[in-house]
Design a protein around this nucleic acid. Structure first.
Lengths: 325, 325
DNA sequence: TTGAAAGCGGTACCAT
DNA sequence: ATGGTACCGCTTTCAA
């Protein structure tokens, strides 16, 4: 079933059918009605590839993230998808893990599929060579969510002030008299380097020498739990409070403390649903993921619509207070 | 940059370039090398839409799920994506929520994008009229993961024996002397109806009259937590143990019990990563999600390759014992 | 082994 | 307002 069949059944030319499909005004109401009726009767849908070939667009946005089983990324994709759906766009997702090679490979695959735009979620993508992003962006707009490292044409960034959010959280701990704050994160690259700067900021502003208590756990979850447990077991006496780079690590901190029969204030990051599933409920820095994604979609649509957009948007983080501090 | 440019630069015809791109054997090694060199030099990638128009395929699989922010679905999509990636296929995802209208709308959108196949994740899709699925499947193969209700040509199902898994779990509770087991779930439709049958099975096999203790919470998480808390507060005396339809609900059960200063054996479902983040660690029925997804991809590839496939695959569930029972 | 040319299913320009 | 047709970029048949 194609546009020629519809044309024949309607007694008009393919051109007219095309006009009807695309809402072109230059069609007599009567003719339009007739064609639409045939389209409805037959359940005809225009071939997406043929349309894609003409428009050079199929209404598909490519989303890259490190690991989709991580709730932070899946939340982001869910949010992006819901907003893009409104604009009649779909989403194709690729998980790239954390190696730059696979990240670049992911971008290549998205380009091969002729996506309308590319969204990179997460700070992990800050390690891709800027020149490569620049090259990609010549043809395909790139929007980064949570990273803001590329100052390039056709690239725009929507992120949260993680540094400030961390600073605020640590400052509150310091104000409450908890001077030796352990910061737990998977590794000290990317996003965590911003958070660590926030950590330093807070100490500096409070005029307290930073103890620089940082524990890195690696990316594997079971291993992270073990690392946290061992560290707290050996060093709990020197630790007044813990801040974690994400809620999962914070949950492991709570668990380790419970095992060790002690308790300290704990603050997580991301304000995920996990915060209310653990005991005590987790105080967490909200990095406004849903807002970021909504704005990212807005930017993306604006870029595709040739509008000029704000190149970098930074939303303030917010400390959400619960039981763990 | 198109195939004609490459042809010109290589001093051959577009047909030959096409042959090289598609690995056609009938090209002189020398010619092939020359063309490949030009392709490499220019970074040329064939237009996906034009290829799609010819092959009537763009290597894209459409995945439908209710809610992607739910870790069960995101885990499934992550798994599907990773396996499809190996076969050089991509994934496009649509979240449909739980209404049949939006589910059908989602399928329509996937068809409009000419996806190679459709994967439906979750029992929620069992409510779509079989006739509609049949119609869709005429053109686009459908694989259901976790549902197995459609016995139709070009449709195949990969699921886990949730009924049996629940029965085993409940049976163990009964054997340990916990006769009044509360079953907590969002609603009693779809997948939970199977689990509830497993619940009944266990009582029947043990020759104990089923107390039919079922608590439904609704789909919203904060509300579910409140419902669980209130119910346990009022009825904890009559409850010997709790089984939940998923790990999130089970976590809320643990939390409520903690609040109430009591403890009962608790068993969750899905064996998600949440099981090790809560205290006590959650015993859970593993529904083998990753295995299901791997098999689903295998089926899908077989169907697309015109092979005949097993229409329905059922994997046994497995009780993973942790601290909560 | 290679090239010419006819599609694939639409869109849009140019006539009428 | 409508139709004829070139064209989007690639594949593939047919001839050479």
């Amino acid at each position: 079933m194609n546009i020629y069949d519809i044309a024949a059944k309607s007694g008009v030319s393919p051109a007219t059918v095309s006009r009807v499909i695309n809402g072109n005004r230059h069609v007599r109401a009567e003719t339009r009605a007739k064609v639409l009726q045939v389209i409805r009767d037959t359940g005809f849908q225009p071939n997406a590839f043929a349309q894609g070939l003409n428009f050079n667009s199929i209404g598909m946005v490519g989303v890259l993230c490190s690991d989709f089983a991580d709730s932070f990324y899946s939340r982001a994709v869910a949010s992006l998808e819901s907003h893009l759906r409104v604009g009649n766009m779909n989403v194709t997702v690729i998980c790239t893990g954390y190696s730059v090679e696979r990240q670049i490979e992911g971008i290549r695959k998205l380009k091969a599929k002729n996506v309308d735009a590319i969204v990179l979620i997460g700070a992990a993508y800050s390690e891709i060579p800027e020149s490569y992003i620049a090259e990609v962006a010549q043809e395909t707009p790139v929007v980064t969510v949570t990273t803001a490292v590329f100052d390039l044409p056709n690239v725009c960034a929507v992120c949260c002030d993680e540094r400030g959010g961390t600073k605020t959280a640590i400052a509150e701990l310091l104000a409450a008299g908890h001077q030796n704050v352990l910061f737990v994160c998977e590794h000290t690259g990317n996003s965590n380097s911003f958070k660590l700067r926030g950590y330093e900021d807070a100490y500096e502003e409070a005029n307290i020498p930073s103890p620089k208590l940082v524990l890195t756990t690696g990316n594997s979850q079971p291993e992270a739990e073990a690392v946290i447990y061992r560290h707290l077991k050996d060093h709990i006496a020197e630790i007044d409070a813990v801040m974690a780079g994400n809620d999962v690590l914070a949950a492991y901190v709570l668990k380790a403390m419970h095992r060790l029969g002690c308790m300290r204030p704990v603050i997580g990051f991301n304000n995920s649903t996990l915060t209310t599933m653990v005991i005590p409920e987790l105080t967490s820095v909200d990095n406004k993921l849903e807002d970021l994604c909504e704005i990212a979609v807005q930017r993306l649509i604006d870029i595709l619509g040739q509008k000029t957009v704000q190149k970098k948007t930074v939303l303030p983080a917010e400390l959400i207070r619960r039981e763990s501090f």
